[in-house]
């Protein structure tokens, strides 16, 4: 990709300008745009308040264009946008939880101090429940594919390909084939994850 000659702002040591990012977004191919939608759907699954994939993607683009998110050197544009969307979704969950805590604290003055504290994620049962539901969604997505389920389990445990094959007794060929099936499933997923 050519570097932009039109810049708004100056590239920092950490990353490129917003104009560079705008040019890269403009230059995305049809298939990249389809990947972008799939990524937005992945990150936004299960968000409350009617905040959907289009909202997450829209917000990500705005934040990149206004320079509040800087595109680091050496990071492909899709990976960067994916990270921005993930961060937006994390922020959104945090805001929802914070607002819920504020509502609860109105009825319980003793909680007023703790509502402003950083969220204790370990002891936040609601957040754990949301994560469990998220995991269940993903497992359900690959329910008919035993090899994919083993890979999913391995990835969730932070294992790399070689270790997954060895831990679950999967051949390298079966692993690669299953990963292709998984990619197709993810790309095919056009409907809302919550409908799974």
């Amino acid at each position: 990709m050519e570097r932009s000659t039109v810049t708004s702002g100056v590239a920092t040591a950490a990353g490129r300008t917003a104009a560079d990012a705008a040019c890269a977004i403009e230059a995305l191919s049809e298939t990249d745009l389809a990947r972008l939608k799939a990524l937005a759907q992945l990150w936004s699954r299960g968000l409350p308040g009617g905040f959907g994939w289009a909202d997450v993607l829209h917000e990500a683009i705005v934040r990149v264009l206004d320079g509040s998110r800087v595109w680091p050197f050496g990071v492909p544009i899709l990976a960067f946008l994916s990270g921005v969307m993930r961060s937006i979704c994390d922020d959104y969950w945090r805001r929802v939880r914070h607002e819920q805590r504020l509502l609860v604290s109105r009825d319980d003055q003793s909680r007023r101090g703790s509502s402003a504290d950083p969220v204790d994620e370990v002891s936040d049962p609601e957040r754990v429940a949301v994560a469990v539901a998220g995991l269940a969604e993903i497992f359900r997505l690959f329910a008919g594919d035993p090899v994919a389920l083993k890979i999913i389990d391995g990835m969730a445990n932070g294992l790399v390909a070689k270790d997954i094959c060895s831990a679950y007794g999967i051949s390298a060929l079966d692993y690669d084939t299953a990963r292709r099936r998984m990619r197709r499933t993810l790309l095919r997923l056009q409907r809302n994850w919550s409908e799974l």
Binding site: W43, I152, L187
Partner: peptide
């Protein structure tokens, strides 16, 4: 898992 799946999409 989401990180790995997002990498798969990319």
């Amino acid at each position: 898992l989401l990180e790995a799946l997002s990498e798969d999409i990319i």
